[in-house]
């Protein structure tokens, strides 16, 4: 059994319900990603402390909190990008569709294919728009032209970029696009590997308000097919786009921890924790 198999298949395992439900789990959606006892260390420094978190399927979860609270570190555990950071160490379990992504016979390469990551700054490859989107499928063995054409077109469509580039996407370099277009290209590129989960690490922080709005609209569209986790420092953005919100902060030992998680409306209007209230009302951070 490999986590590479799409969960929609008939023989997909029943999603394991957490035995210890994290506080305030009010959605009924199945759990896509589940973290238990998650700790991240960079060398001797603990960056993330004891995070338990459930991320429901087909919903948008946002991570908010002051900078340095480990949001990005946690996000990068979900597709094992921390493996590539020298000196980084991850403790605890992360389940994707009920399977441990750090398991012995799980390949990081497979995890990263199932779990896409969109970076803070748009980072298209220095190649054509077409080749950018086709990059993932090609590396994973799709060489049929017609199949690739279809993937590229549909992913550019899903990323709401198709109309803007359809005339010259085979010739034009990805780098020639505007910042917002580049970021949507990066999203299209991620979608092309057919992930279950799309992680977004402050995807709009390098973009202007109009481009930001487009990405936010896009996220709402994508929710139907994907599970989305977005790290953002912009609380309005979290409030606008996400179904659920997790608030992190930094402890006295400067390691980040989860304060509370709940439906976005609750977190912003009626948080249970004083720390959360201070943060969302702008009194802190």
């Amino acid at each position: 059994m490999s986590i590479a198999d799409p969960p929609a298949r008939a023989d997909a395992p029943e999603v394991t319900r957490p035995t210890v439900a994290p506080s305030s789990l009010s959605t009924s959606a199945p759990i896509k990603l589940q973290a238990r006892g998650l700790n991240v260390y960079y060398g001797a420094k603990r960056a993330v402390r004891d995070v338990d978190l459930d991320i429901p399927a087909n919903a948008i979860m946002s991570f908010i909190g002051p900078s340095g609270c480990g949001k990005t570190s946690i996000l990068r555990c979900f597709d094992r990008m921390n493996d590539l950071v020298p000196g980084a160490r991850v403790e605890g379990t992360i389940m994707l569709n009920g399977e441990d992504i750090n398991g012995r016979d799980i390949l990081p390469v497979e995890v990263r294919r199932r779990v896409g990551l969109v970076f803070q700054r748009p980072n298209p490859f220095p190649m054509t728009i077409y080749d950018n989107v086709a990059y993932g499928p090609r590396r994973h063995g799709t060489s049929n032209r017609a199949a690739l054409d279809e993937i590229v077109e549909s992913c550019l469509g899903r990323a709401a970029l198709w109309d803007e580039v359809k005339d010259d996407y085979r010739k034009k370099s990805g780098l020639s696009l505007s910042g917002g277009q580049q970021q949507r290209l990066c999203i299209a590129r991620t979608l092309a590997t057919e992930p279950d989960v799309v992680l977004m690490d402050e995807p709009c922080s390098a973009l202007d308000p109009i481009a930001t709005l487009k990405i936010e609209e896009l996220m709402a569209d994508l929710r139907a097919r994907y599970t989305i986790v977005i790290v953002t420092h912009n609380m309005q953005q979290a409030a606008r786009v996400s179904d659920r919100t997790a608030f992190f902060t930094m402890g006295e030992d400067r390691s980040g921890y989860l304060v509370e998680v709940g439906d976005t409306s609750e977190i912003f209007t009626n948080p249970r924790e004083r720390l959360t209230e201070d943060y969302v009302s702008g009194r802190f951070g």
């Binding site: 990008m81 590539l84 896409g116 970076f119 220095p126 990059y135 993932g136 590396r139 994973h140 590129r189």
Partner: peptide, 23 residues
């Protein structure tokens, strides 16, 4: 960032070298 982008798409190190770094 180019390497991270490739790796995040689930490619191996050699694929990243061959198709991103060398070009």
């Amino acid at each position: 960032e180019l390497r991270s982008a490739s790796v995040a798409l689930g490619t191996t190190r050699w694929q990243t070298i061959r198709h991103v770094v060398i070009p």
